[in-house]
Design a protein around this nucleic acid. Structure first.
Lengths: 207, 207
DNA sequence: ATACAAAGACAACGGGAGTTTCGTTTGTCT
DNA sequence: AGACAAACGAAACTCCCGTTGTCTTTGTAT
């Protein structure tokens, strides 16, 4: 199953050339992704653009899916800006707005689409994506903790579920039904999430 | 762009053989999809399984994406069961349960995954999928109309948005974050959608 | 029944993607 | 500084997918 002897590609010998190869190949992957697209992408062309032998890419990443997974692992590191305005609904609204912006950035969008497409058939990619969202959700949920401390939401409120309720509307429109996403949708999603949380609909199961 | 001279493949001459070929090929596509997967699927193997020359498939469907689109168009015809219990929240809960069941059926799930993956890079597939959801949403929204007639929701409530609010939670968990979906999630989604609708959060924009 | 065109079958071809082999470079350890 | 193995590069090779051209079958109109 796994191709690399160690966790991340090239960790055995993270010297100058190896590290440079990795960054070059990942950069080439991004570039090919944006102007060729995942469907018509090939390992050979990525290697050519990176100025690297294709055998190198095959040895370290195995295939396109491996490249995408590695790309995602880098994305996870980025810190998520979590708003803190003193109001749950306002925090959620701001979070929704940044999600909206993310989906309007062509560069990031292409990458998300590639990751989703890969995760649909590749197990490693699926796990990497789940881990990515587990991390993001947990980080964003800090604003729910603060709302709970202020007494804005009832005790027992599921901190992650509030963020899920907010996010799902965007992903659904953008990637499932294919409808456009507007500022109005962002504000409405924030209102729904905040209202539901305050009403105690998003509490953790009694176990 | 478009390959066939007419709208649907084989409408020029819908005689016995042509129709039989279509059903055989689509059946073979389903079969290949379930036990080979979209990623490793190829037109040649589909044709072989269907007992048809591969040139025939290439001529009528052009590529795998075309096959998937045609498969989706058949799925659209299926009528959606819309509950009518006399209560908005109960209707939504039942709708949520059937969605849950849909995502637990391995056969249907494989197909949805294939369609989503295809829609991410193929324009025709994207349009077909949007049309599919436009149809499904509109059909399901009938239960919102009845709730409105009963006065359960305020006037001006966006009938489609209620269904979207219900559905999005499922799709998000299942295809984006990759988390499991349970009965509890179904009931909670129904509660959120019903509560939000009653609170007037899902009204159409004033325009 | 006959004619005609559409749809399909068959065979051969071309090309490109992934694999294999082997030689070379380079990072690290002593 | 030298040894050793990891990482990379280059070329040849193989396989399979998609295309093309031609002939045959079949549905439909007259």
């Amino acid at each position: 199953m796994s191709h690399a002897p160690e966790g991340k590609p090239g960790t055995v010998r993270p010297g100058g050339r190896t590290a440079r190869t990795r960054t070059d190949v990942l950069a080439a992957t991004r570039a090919e992704l944006t102007d060729t697209g995942l469907a018509r992408m090939t390992v050979e062309k990525v290697a050519a653009r990176a100025g690297v032998a294709k055998t190198t890419v095959y040895a370290r990443w195995r295939d396109i899916s491996g490249l995408i997974v590695d790309l995602l692992s880098e994305l996870t590191v980025r810190t998520v800006p979590v708003p803190d305005t003193g109001s749950l609904e306002e925090d959620l609204r701001q979070l929704a707005r940044s999600l909206l912006e993310l989906f309007r950035s062509t560069e990031d969008l292409v990458m998300f689409e590639a990751i989703f497409a890969t995760a649909l058939h590749d197990r490693e990619a699926r796990e990497a994506l789940s881990a990515f969202y587990a991390f993001r959700l947990d980080a964003s949920a800090a604003l729910v903790d603060r709302a709970a401390a202020r007494g804005e939401v009832p005790p027992g409120t599921d901190r992650l579920e509030v963020i899920r309720t907010l996010s799902s509307a965007f992903y659904y429109r953008r990637f499932i039904s294919g409808e456009p996403v507007t500022e109005r949708d962002a504000d409405r999603a924030a209102a729904v999430a905040a209202h539901s949380a305050r009403a105690g609909l998003l509490v953790v199961p009694p176990a």
